[in-house]
């Protein structure tokens, strides 16, 4: 199904320079706090993400990991501290929010594809309406990314006619069509049947090899070991531990991290 060798992620995968991490910070979160009413969900978050970094955030449910990445593109509002994405300060200015959302792609647990539009229309919608791209060009780009996630033949179907794994791959292609600098993944495989997880992870691994800056909330520890260059463990709204994957898995420092790892790796 893969067409065109120069587009093939495998050829990029062999290129070690593509995995290099730049020095420049694309996301810097400083002393960020968030409350839901009286409930303090995120506590003093400090996080810097450099260009090309692949960060995996894990932690028990309710630890605030989804909320954290949803703050980055303002699906959730933070109340204290600052978030700076690619030089744009995230505040109440709608222009800044729109600018950040154009730079940041997001993939959701439940795909959030638009069921009334075909796969191709899902992919071309934002380029046409947000970037004012001509329809033909948007369709070419959409087909390019649909080929990359290996479902160009589904372009004219509706999302409801696809399997979960296929839908999630469409969702990834839809985000990529906006040519984002950063991709956020919010538990992208948690709603999938076991046999479909791999097809989605494969696409994500390829994306990592191409040098995309990625923040993934996921429980796929295999994925974290393969592609992440930093793993962040959160609990109770705080960042408990942050380390390179090897150190994180083999030599976790905090008790809570050890407990969490022992529970998820027990089986």
């Amino acid at each position: 199904m893969m067409q065109g060798d120069q587009n093939s992620p495998d050829s990029v995968a062999g290129n070690p320079s593509a995995m290099q991490v730049g020095d420049e910070a694309v996301i810097s979160i400083t002393d960020m706090n968030k409350w839901y009413g009286q409930f303090h969900v995120l506590k003093d978050i400090n996080l810097t993400v450099r260009r090309g970094e692949r960060i995996v955030i894990c932690g028990p449910s309710g630890s605030g990991k989804s909320t954290l990445i949803r703050c980055i593109n303002r699906l959730e509002e933070h109340q204290q501290g600052s978030i700076n994405v690619d030089g744009i300060e995230l505040n109440n200015d709608l222009k800044n929010i729109d600018a950040i959302r154009r730079e940041v792609g997001m993939v959701f647990q439940h795909f959030n594809l638009f069921p009334h539009l075909t796969v191709l229309q899902n992919c071309t919608l934002a380029p046409i309406w947000v970037k004012k791209m001509p329809r033909r060009e948007a369709e070419q780009i959409a087909m390019k990314y649909l080929e990359r996630v290996r479902i160009p033949e589904q372009a004219n179907k509706f999302p409801g006619q696809l399997s979960g794994g296929q839908q999630q791959r469409v969702a990834i292609a839809r985000s990529l069509c906006m040519n984002p600098k950063i991709m956020l993944f919010d538990e992208p495989t948690s709603a999938l049947d076991p046999e479909m997880i791999k097809e989605v992870l494969d696409v994500m691994i390829e994306l990592a090899h191409e040098g995309m800056t990625m923040i993934c909330v996921t429980h796929e520890m295999g994925f974290a070991k393969t592609v992440a260059n930093r793993v962040i463990f959160m609990d109770g709204g705080q960042i408990i531990e942050e380390n390179e994957p090897e150190e994180f898995f083999n030599n976790p420092q905090s008790d809570r991290t050890q407990l969490f790892l022992s529970q998820i790796l027990a089986h």
Binding site: N73, R74, L75, L94, D98, R101, R102, V104, G105, M106, F108, H110, F111, N112, L113, F114, P115, H116, L125, A126, W129, V130, R174, S175, M178
Partner: peptide
Amino acid sequence: KGQYEGAMALGLPFGKMMRLIILPQ
């Protein structure tokens, strides 16, 4: 809610989100 979030994450402003995503459905 996911439909709103999907549209917002793509950078669609409110009016276009309503007209293209929410109202048709």
